[in-house]
Design a protein around this nucleic acid. Structure first.
Lengths: 192, 192
DNA sequence: TATATTATTTGACTTAAGTCAAATACAGCC
DNA sequence: GGCTGTATTTGACTTAAGTCAAATAATATA
C-alpha cells in the first residue's frame, strides 16, 4: 500500500491510544454494534448517509450506478471505516450504495451523535480531522493509480498490495473497482 | 460545477463570515502576501509543502512527473487554495510541483503557524475541517469524472463548468489535466 | 519586420481495452 | 449425483485513444 497511508494509519492508531478515558467512553456510548446479513444494503442511494460503519467482521462494498451498471468504488474489510463521504460530510442524499457482501458486523456511529461528542471532547475533533486527511490521501492515491497505470498494472498492484481482495470478492466487483471490464480482467488474469 | 461543491463552498463562506474578530486577526497575523513571477516554482518535488497559498491574482498549476512527462493535477485561479495535499497533511516530501503560470500574488500561511493558531482559536479548527472536507469532495468528484466519462465528455464538461481554463491555460496542461494526449485534445476541439 | 521558439494541428498507423456472443466452470440445492 | 443459476473464460470483432512524425500557426525576440 501507499507508504504515506501506512504511516498515517499508524499515526491515527497512536493518536487513538492517547485519547483520554472520557473521550473513549463518549465514543463507546454512541457506538451501536449491528449486524447486516449478506446481500443487504447498509446504505441506499437517495438516503442521507447518517452513519459511519466500522467493520468488525465481514466484507462490504460501496458502489454507484452508471448507465444501469454497478460501479464499485471501494471494498471494505475488517477495521475499515465505511461511509459515503460526500453524503456524510454534507448530510445530503447519497449517490452510493453500501452493500454487505458477506454477513457483516459493524460498529455504527450516528452522525449527530458524533458531532455532539466532538463538541464535548475536543480530542475527537482531532481524530475526525485525521480520519478526513486519511481519506483525502487515500482518494488522491487511488486517482493517481487510475490515471497513471494501465489495467494490467492496476491489477498487479492490487495483487501485491491487497491479495485478500482477490480471494474473497467476485471478479465482477474487482473489475469495476479497477475500472476495467470483466472480460479484460479475466484475460489479464489468464496471461501468465 | 458539482452542485455539492457549490453548496459546500457557500457554507464555508458563511462560516468564515461568523468567525470572531480574534480568529480573523490571528489569521491575518500569520498571513504573508507574496508574489511569484511567471514560470517560477512555488513548491518543488522533494520539498515538504509547508505553506498554503491562497491565490489573490494569477494562475498556477500543480503537477507531477510520470515517465519524464509533466502531468497536471490541478489548475488554480483567484481565490483558490493551492497546496500539495499529501505533503501538507503529513509534512512529508512532496511528489508535486506548484508552478506559477502567470505572475502570481498569494496569501501565504505557514503550516506551523496555522497549527498554532488552531490551538488558540477553535473556530479555525472547524474551518480547517471544512476545507478538508471540501477537498475530499473535490477529489472524489474529479475521480468520478475520470472514471465515468470519455475524453470528449470530460472536455465538454470542462468547457461548460470552467470555460476560463481553456482561455487562459496552454492546451498541453489542459490535456494532461484531463488525462488525454495533446493530439487527442486537439482533435476533440476541431470536431464541431 | 524577419527569425527563432513554442504551441497547436493534421496525418498515418498502432494498441489497449471494450463489446457482444457463446462456451465452460462452479456452487448451491433438491 | 444431477440440475439450475451464477461466475468466469474464450473468441471474434470494434473502437477510443495513443504514438510518432511532420506541417502549420502563433508568439516572442533580435
Amino acid at each position: 500500500m501507499n507508504p504515506d497511508l501506512v504511516l498515517y494509519d499508524s499515526r491515527i492508531q497512536q493518536y487513538v491510544a492517547t485519547l483520554d478515558i472520557a473521550a473513549l467512553e463518549a465514543l463507546e456510548s454512541i457506538t451501536e454494534t449491528k449486524t447486516y446479513p449478506k446481500g443487504s444494503l447498509m446504505l441506499k442511494a437517495g438516503q442521507i448517509c447518517r452513519n459511519s460503519f466500522e467493520l468488525v467482521s465481514g466484507i462490504a462494498r460501496k458502489y454507484h450506478l452508471h448507465n444501469g451498471a454497478e460501479i464499485t468504488n471501494e471494498i471494505y474489510f475488517e477495521h475499515d471505516l465505511a461511509l459515503s463521504f460526500g453524503s456524510y460530510a454534507l448530510q445530503r442524499p447519497s449517490e452510493e450504495y453500501i452493500e454487505a457482501l458477506t454477513d457483516v458486523t459493524a460498529r455504527v456511529i450516528h452522525y449527530d451523535s458524533f458531532q455532539k461528542a466532538k463538541e464535548e471532547h475536543p480530542m475527537l475533533r482531532q481524530l475526525d480531522l485525521m480520519l478526513l486527511e486519511y481519506y483525502g490521501i487515500w482518494v488522491e492515491d487511488r486517482m493517481n493509480q487510475m490515471r497513471r497505470y494501465s489495467a494490467t498494472e492496476r491489477y498487479k498492484q492490487l495483487l501485491e498490495h491487497t491479495p485478500h481482495i482477490i480471494k474473497s470478492v467476485p471478479l465482477t466487483y474487482i473489475a469495476s473497482y479497477l475500472g476495467i471490464s470483466l472480460e479484460t480482467l479475466s484475460r489479464i488474469r489468464s496471461r501468465r
